[in-house]
Amino acid sequence: MRQADVFGEVFAVELIMAGAVFLAVLAAVLYAVLRRRAGAAAGPSERAERPRLEAAYVAVLAAVAVFLVVYTALANHREHRTGHVGAPAGPPAAPEVVEVDVTAFQWCWTFRHPRPGGAGATSGTCRAEEVPTLVVPTGRPVRVELTSRDVIHSLWVPELRYKMDAFPHHTNSFTLTLDEEGRWLGRCAEFCGYRHYAMHFWLRAVSPGEYERWVAGHQAAAGGAA
């Protein structure tokens, strides 16, 4: 879960920095409240400004800003590099990319797993209260091609710390790589009307072998139904 790893690292860094700034400002306010109150303090300072100190301070602020911009932009690029993180360089080891076409609509999702030659498996019927499941293999990069049939939705898997909007008449793509098997709840994050609050799905990661069996099974089922 590269997205979650990158998020965790950057969030920790920014949280620590923010916490430090907050505590420093709070300490200054409390100091002023306790030690500069009318009863406790001598007269107010006459000093109107301290341009030297302020200039040095602006330089520090600018340095912090530049650090944050560069550091977080690099993290963003790392997150969006395709291919497997940590995989040895060179194509032989790179596992094959799996493609999934995700279509959002009011108020459900369809997940298509295209196969060469036009065939493919579709999961999720969205009948009644059924929550559809997006099945993906572990260890292989999954390229998600995301679009919408009506209004804007947004595919969010909180556990992955990642979301991407689904637009009508436009396809967004991103790559996920899941290292462990498991099942996580996904939600719609962009307001889309009456049942926006209930537009859930499951993301399920299974072993590559099980994934192949699953696609084959659903292909057959879909074919049989037709």
């Binding site: 409240v33 500069r36 109150r37 001598a42 602006v58 800003a65």
Partner: peptide, 24 residues
Amino acid sequence: ILLLVPAGVEYFAMLGTILGGRLV
């Protein structure tokens, strides 16, 4: 993120005011 620079300057001024003040 660059906005933190002018925002920081405003905080500098507000904190400087109360740190050198006689608060009521």
